[in-house]
């Protein structure tokens, strides 16, 4: 086993103070840790959308599919169905996953496809320079909404629970100590793992002092009823000034999409034989 630095020489263009650095280094540490535990590096595939978050595909020296805005999850789903042995991780943005590609997020959870979705949730469109996203608070003054937004944010954790995700957690880029084990846990969970990571956007939505004053670590509550989980997930609705829980909220073992697929290999000769047989049925 060789120690690879895991960071490419691609010039990094995130702003100073950007929360994405924390995610990048947390991923690197987790990949190295998992490698020590026996998962070889080529088993990881990073699939990204488009946005500041997505540059992580260039920066981390592992397999990647730098896809298009909102569509990381279907790409990852294809990879995972084809290759159940791979660990497929989506790094997506909040605009990416909650606006442009929301349908895929819901369906990924619904299928319980065994991938990990990590939302770099800075609650703003970073790359397109500061418009509101589905998790920006009511009244958010972005460049497309100078007078403030007219709509409430959605609560992605609640949405994921009702959609069928089997692992739900929240992280924060200023709490690396918690972020690493969260990422590792989510990657190792068998089934659809969802992590909403509150990510500081130093340029367009720097609310770290607010987060710092509200975050606390949640304790996992095995055996909780659906209603009880929902209640905890609703404590902070991305709009109110309430305590913000960090950690694993929900975990469930359930058959994954791949578990329900069985496909056998068929040789070229057998294929031709089958074609002949089908044609005989069509006489």
């Amino acid at each position: 086993m060789t120690e690879r630095p895991l960071i490419t020489d691609a010039p990094n263009t995130w702003c100073p103070g950007c929360g994405n650095f924390a995610l990048e280094y947390a991923f690197r540490d987790v990949f190295q840790e998992l490698q020590k535990e026996g998962i070889s590096l080529e088993k990881f595939v990073l699939v990204t959308g488009i946005g500041c978050h997505a540059k992580i595909a260039d920066y981390l020296d592992v397999n990647s599919f730098y896809a298009i805005h909102g569509r990381a999850i279907p790409v990852a789903t294809g990879i995972k169905i084809a290759r159940p042995d791979l660990h497929v991780i989506c790094c997506v943005g909040d605009g990416d996953a909650y606006a442009e590609g929301l349908d895929h997020l819901i369906f990924g959870a619904k299928r319980n496809i065994d991938i990990t979705v990590v939302v770099h949730n800075n609650r703003v469109y970073g790359l397109t320079t500061g418009q509101y996203t589905p998790t920006s608070p009511l009244g958010f003054k972005g460049r497309s909404t100078p007078a403030g937004t007219l709509e409430y944010p959605l609560n992605p954790l609640e949405l994921m629970l009702t959609s069928g995700a089997t692992y739900i957690g929240r992280g924060y880029t200023k709490n690396l100590k918690l972020l690493r084990p969260l990422l590792k846990d989510a990657i190792l969970h068998k089934g659809f793992s969802f992590l909403d990571v509150l990510q500081i956007c130093a340029t367009y939505y720097d609310v770290h002092s607010m987060y710092d004053s509200l975050v606390y670590e949640v304790k996992e509550q095995p055996g909780e009823s659906y209603e009880e989980v929902i209640k905890r997930l609703r404590e902070w609705d991305y709009n109110n000034k309430a305590p913000i829980g960090l950690g694993t909220y929900y975990r469930k073992e359930a058959p994954t999409f791949n578990d329900r697929i069985t496909v056998m290999k068929v040789s070229d000769r057998e294929r031709e034989e089958i074609i002949r047989r089908v044609l005989e049925e069509h006489l």
Partner: peptide
């Protein structure tokens, strides 16, 4: 009969992107 995976996803946007994932994974 022929060892084929047939998937019907949520919409055509997913169809195309999922297929690209399959292709990149060697299908």
């Amino acid at each position: 009969k022929v060892g084929l995976k047939v998937i019907h996803p949520e919409n055509e946007i997913a169809v195309m992107n999922m297929a690209l994932g399959f292709a990149a994974a060697g299908e």
